[in-house]
Amino acid sequence: MSSHREEKQFFAQRLKSALQDRNHPISPTYLSNEFNNRYDGQPISVQSANNWLLGKAIPNQDKLSILSLWLNVSAQWLRFGEETEPSQQIIARSSSDQLDLDYFMKYKRLPLSQKKLIQSLIDELSSLDRHK
Rank of each mutant, 00 (worst) to 15 (best):
Q61H: 07
A49P: 07
S3Y: 01
E83L: 14
W52A: 00
P28C: 00
N33P: 00
S27C: 10
L15N: 07
V73W: 13
Q76E: 13
T29K: 15
Y39L: 02
S27M: 08
W52Y: 13
F80K: 14
D62Y: 03
Y39T: 03
R5T: 14
K63I: 03
N51E: 08
L31V: 01
R79W: 06
I58T: 09
W77M: 09
Q13N: 09
N36R: 08
L53D: 01
E6C: 06
G55N: 05
L69C: 15
S32M: 10
S27H: 08
W52I: 00
D21F: 12
L19Q: 01
Q20S: 10
L54V: 00
A18C: 11
I26R: 01
Q20D: 05
E6V: 15
S87W: 11
R14C: 09
N60G: 05
N33K: 12
L31N: 06
L15C: 08
N72S: 15
N33M: 11
D40Y: 11
D21A: 15
S17M: 10
F35N: 03
R22V: 10
D21I: 10
I58W: 00
W70C: 07
Q47R: 15
T29W: 13
A49V: 11
Y30A: 06
P25K: 13
S87C: 13
T29D: 13
H24C: 09
R79Y: 06
L31K: 05
S74T: 15
L15R: 04
D40E: 06
I66C: 04
K16V: 06
N50W: 06
Q42V: 09
P43N: 05
E6W: 04
F11D: 04
L53S: 01
N23G: 08
F35W: 03
P28W: 02
F80S: 12
E7V: 07
L78A: 08
Q20C: 05
D21Q: 15
W52M: 00
E7D: 13
G55V: 01
A75N: 04
Q9G: 05
S65Y: 09
S45I: 01
L31M: 08
A57L: 04
G81V: 01
L71I: 12
W52H: 00
I66S: 01
S65E: 12
L67A: 04
S27R: 06
S48N: 07
F11R: 05
E34W: 10
E7Q: 14
P86Y: 14
E34P: 05
G81L: 07
I26Y: 05
P43Y: 03
V73T: 08
Q9H: 13
N36Q: 09
Q61I: 10
P59K: 01
H24K: 11
K63C: 10
V46Y: 07
R5G: 11
K63T: 04
Y30D: 08
P86E: 06
P25V: 14
N60P: 03
R14Y: 08
L69Y: 15
Q42G: 03
P25Y: 08
T29C: 07
Y30C: 02
G81Q: 09
N37G: 08
Q20G: 04
E83A: 12
S68V: 01
